[in-house]
Amino acid sequence: MRCTAVIVRYAHGGGLTDAERAVRERVRLDAVARFEAGDKNTVVAATLRVSEKSVERWRRQ
C-alpha cells in the first residue's frame, strides 16, 4: 500500500478571518524589516515565533 502526500491550498485564505489574515500579513512585513536589518533566518523565526521554513520562503519571495 502506498501513501501519497497531498498539499491542499485554500483559495479563501486557509479558513482564517480577515483579522487573522491581517495579523499574518503584519508578521510577514515584520520579517521583511528584519531581513533588511540583516537578521539571519533563525533569529527572525525565533523572534516572530514562526518556522524557519516559513521565514526561508518569505525571504525567497
Score class of each variant (00 low, 15 high):
residue 2 R to F: 12
residue 3 C to E: 05
residue 4 T to C: 06
residue 4 T to Y: 13
residue 4 T to H: 12
residue 4 T to W: 09
residue 5 A to E: 09
residue 6 V to F: 08
residue 7 I to N: 05
residue 7 I to R: 06
residue 8 V to K: 08
residue 8 V to C: 05
residue 9 R to E: 09
residue 10 Y to P: 02
residue 10 Y to I: 11
residue 11 A to V: 07
residue 11 A to K: 08
residue 11 A to M: 05
residue 12 H to F: 14
residue 12 H to G: 09
residue 13 G to T: 01
residue 13 G to C: 03
residue 14 G to E: 00
residue 15 G to M: 02
residue 15 G to L: 07
residue 15 G to K: 05
residue 18 D to A: 15
residue 19 A to P: 03
residue 20 E to H: 01
residue 24 R to T: 10
residue 24 R to V: 03
residue 25 E to F: 09
residue 26 R to S: 14
residue 26 R to K: 15
residue 26 R to W: 08
residue 27 V to A: 08
residue 28 R to A: 14
residue 28 R to E: 05
residue 28 R to Q: 14
residue 28 R to N: 09
residue 28 R to K: 13
residue 30 D to N: 15
residue 31 A to K: 11
residue 32 V to M: 06
residue 33 A to I: 01
residue 34 R to N: 09
residue 34 R to Y: 11
residue 35 F to S: 06
residue 36 E to S: 03
residue 36 E to K: 12
residue 37 A to T: 07
residue 38 G to N: 07
residue 38 G to D: 02
residue 38 G to K: 03
residue 38 G to V: 06
residue 38 G to I: 08
residue 39 D to K: 12
residue 39 D to Q: 14
residue 39 D to T: 04
residue 40 K to A: 15
residue 44 V to P: 08
residue 48 L to Q: 00
residue 48 L to M: 05
residue 49 R to K: 13
residue 49 R to P: 03
residue 49 R to H: 13
residue 49 R to S: 11
residue 51 S to Q: 01
residue 53 K to W: 01
residue 53 K to C: 01
residue 53 K to I: 03
residue 54 S to N: 10
residue 55 V to D: 00
residue 58 W to N: 01
residue 58 W to Y: 12
residue 59 R to F: 05
residue 59 R to W: 08
residue 60 R to V: 13
